[in-house]
Amino acid sequence: MLANQIKEYANIQKEALTGRELEASVLTRAAQMLKHCQDNWNAPDREKKLQEALKFNQKIWSFFQAELSVPDNPLPKKLREDILSLSLFVDKRIFEIIAFPESEKLTIVIDINMNIAAGLRTGPGDDI
């Protein structure tokens, strides 16, 4: 019963979030998944958790790449290009971690996700 209530709450929360808030939430979740792996690097289920976290991050950044590649995307061209460039860096780092896993390599992806999420939570014209 409680699991159904939690699931229902999560669905309502998703519906209430704006696009920017949802993107920030997803990036934060992705960063937290990676951070959990980093903090528990010697855990027996690390390989499974790491693969899940990396796959989740890949999906997010692939989505961003697809959205930013759409010709009528409303973001300024320079910003789109910069985020696409960043997404290529994240892709490269994820593949590097898959091939040669090291906990330190997660830090940059965690930081990027958290910084982008923070920027998304700051509305245009908000004081930083």
Rank of each mutant, 00 (worst) to 15 (best):
N113Y: 01
E81T: 15
D126K: 03
A31P: 02
Q51P: 02
D45K: 05
E15D: 01
R29G: 03
E67F: 04
I98T: 08
L50F: 03
I60H: 04
A10N: 10
T18A: 00
R46Y: 08
A117E: 03
A53C: 01
N57V: 04
L50Q: 07
K55P: 09
S103C: 04
L34V: 09
L17N: 00
V70L: 11
E104S: 12
I97A: 10
I6W: 01
T18Y: 06
L22M: 15
V70S: 12
K55D: 15
D72K: 13
Q38C: 07
P44S: 08
R121L: 15
D127Q: 07
T107M: 08
F56L: 01
E67M: 11
I116C: 10
N113D: 04
I60D: 10
Q51K: 06
A3C: 02
I83S: 04
P74E: 09
G119H: 02
N4R: 06
L79N: 06
F64V: 13
E96A: 05
T122E: 01
Q32I: 09
K35R: 15
L27F: 04
E23K: 11
I97S: 02
I116N: 12
D72T: 10
I97M: 09
N113I: 07
I60M: 10
N4P: 00
R80D: 13
V70P: 08
A53D: 04
A99C: 05
A10R: 07
V70K: 15
S62L: 08
D39S: 07
L86W: 10
D91T: 13
R29A: 05
E96W: 09
P71E: 09
D127P: 01
E8I: 03
K49L: 12
F64A: 12
